[in-house]
Design a protein around this nucleic acid. Structure first.
Lengths: 198, 198, 198, 198
DNA sequence: TATGAATGAGATTTCATTCAT
DNA sequence: TATGAATGAAATCTCATTCAT
């Protein structure tokens, strides 16, 4: 069949991103074949190579774009200029919200790191560390001002991020608790965990 | 003459478990082939089928045995009969310790759940829920006794487990902090997170 | 306004010939893809089909044109009317010169014969035989006149052509010996090989 | 279907060599697929990989073994200790004989050099140069003893080898002339070409 | 208990070619 | 005259698994 009128290319490119994201999140990078992606998109496998040179590049693109958007989104919050307690609460709420609305992107960015080739791994790791560093900066500020009581800012940052990110492993929207409520509970636990009682 | 304890077969079986565990943790279930396992064990691929009927069964065995050991280990702690605060601290320390000494088992039990076929998934999920329920029971007890201040025991349990389990994503033994210290920091953060200040 | 001589189309057609020739000579017909040719020409693969209906036709065109030019060039030498010894020397020198200036054309005409489909193969083979027959005619004339001492004109012709054509497998211009010198050495060896001593 | 009794492996390995050789010679390395080889051998494509890790390695093995056998065969002739004229005649006859009995091996070793990856190319080239050097040594000896009249031993060697090797492009056994006769004609032409008249 | 040989399916990727625009 | 998008077939190679020995 020949191509349709209109900008078929843009639609196809977007569809490849969407379907790859969904399939990688559901089955894992290695368990998803180019055939599966092509079938989900509605093209022959060969057509994918007009848009991405390799399967690895599809994954890499999804991850890089996710991390860049996460960082841009975070920067847009202006959290850095807030006082420590407000900043930490804001960070927790932002992180939870981001997770709950971009479940697939977040999921593959944590789960499929090992599927990346070394160069790509380094790049994504570096973006992730940039994000983690933002949290650490908040913790250090709060600690220096005597607002937080923490032993080690690195350990605390890791613990907090793991706690927050974990929401995706169990929360399904439409459940017993609203997303707002989840945000609130996690934010409170985070603040308390660093000795900041309300 | 009697057969030695630890016949060739037993050694091979153990080696398959060890090497599969290591390889699955390192590369992911789908990225590991039976050939890779066989090569690591030092046999031909066909030999693996003397011990496991399918690759899926290797994964399943590793996961089931890990979960069963985790539960048995936990039961042996006698945490259930301790008062809530002590129990929670004890749980946190136990969980961290278990993670830091069984990194591979823990890792694949979290990461490769989706690689399981439905029946196996159900079985492992059920074991995991049993473990999570132990934590929830502690939280409920503490909450009822007014020792913990939590909004929702399920959410808190999920958050705590995610925080604790996350230690594996970054901690490498021989680092800046001892395992004991890590235990201590996490235990304190957990207690605080449920409003239990020391 | 009138179109310029050498329209875009003519330039493209010429570029396809040149690049195909170069690539076929370098990598072999089967190892060269239409994409490679298109890329070398600076167009998209589809554009090639404005000038040649198939990849096979590109090869066929290159070969046919080469053989026709070789024959025309040879005819223009007027060798047929020369006495046998002069004719043979002239043939040898012409053949060497032609090889050394059209390395790629000559190369693919010998190497890629088997890549041709039957009909094309027959056509090129027939042109080649016409050329070989010219040499054989010289040998027969010289033999009949007692100037050459050969056992079998076909074998001698094949041997001489192989010897001369072989120059391309090793000679690179700008080397130790000039092209003129090469011509001279080969011409002498050819004459001697048929018992025609100077 | 399961495997037959007997050493199926050795038979298969030999069959892969034979069929690859035949097919590469007939169609060219790039035009032959692993499917084609497998089909000719009577196995599934995957089975080939029990014997050769890559298609390239099949070609490389065929070429290396051919060159090594050629050199060993040549050494066994003891040509080096013969006087120049006898040595050159002997070389020519040996080369022709070898060509006429190993047409496919010889053919691919000349035609498919460019299909080799750099490392393999170097290896085969080096073996080929060793062989060529043997001929050059004969020419130099004869030249120094005033028996041959040659301008340049390298050019002469190249010319002679090309002439001799060319026999394969046209001779088919069972034709008008016996192999012995061919040997004789070529040997005489070679001797004459270096000014050594009988 | 293990091997060596093989299968049939499927992996990623590339191919020549087509055709609406 | 050329492009951008796509196809359907085929490329090399790897996979889990089987089974006679």
């Amino acid at each position: 069949m020949a191509r349709q009128a209109g900008s078929a290319g843009e639609k196809t490119a977007a569809a490849i991103r969407e379907q790859s994201l969904r399939l990688f999140a559901q089955h894992g990078y290695d368990a998803v074949s180019m055939r599966m992606i092509a079938h989900a998109v509605g093209v022959q496998p060969g057509a994918l190579y007009q848009y991405f040179p390799t399967k690895q590049q599809i994954l890499m693109t999804l991850m890089r774009e996710h991390m860049e958007e996460l960082l841009a989104s975070f920067k847009a919050q202006g959290i850095e200029s807030e006082p420590p307690a407000a900043a930490l609460e804001h960070f927790a709420r932002f992180h939870i919200r981001y997770h709950l609305t971009r479940a697939d992107e977040v999921f593959i960015s944590y789960m499929e790191l090992r599927a990346l080739e070394p160069a790509g791994f380094q790049e994504v790791e570096s973006l992730r560390k940039t994000y983690e560093t933002e949290l650490k900066a908040i913790l250090v500020r709060g600690s220096e001002q005597g607002i937080f009581r923490i032993e080690d800012s690195h350990v605390s940052a890791m613990a907090i991020i793991a706690m927050l990110t974990g929401v995706n492993t169990w929360y399904r929207s439409g459940g017993r608790l609203s997303e707002k409520k989840i945000e609130e509970i996690y934010a409170e636990m985070v603040l308390r965990s660093v000795g900041c009682v309300d």
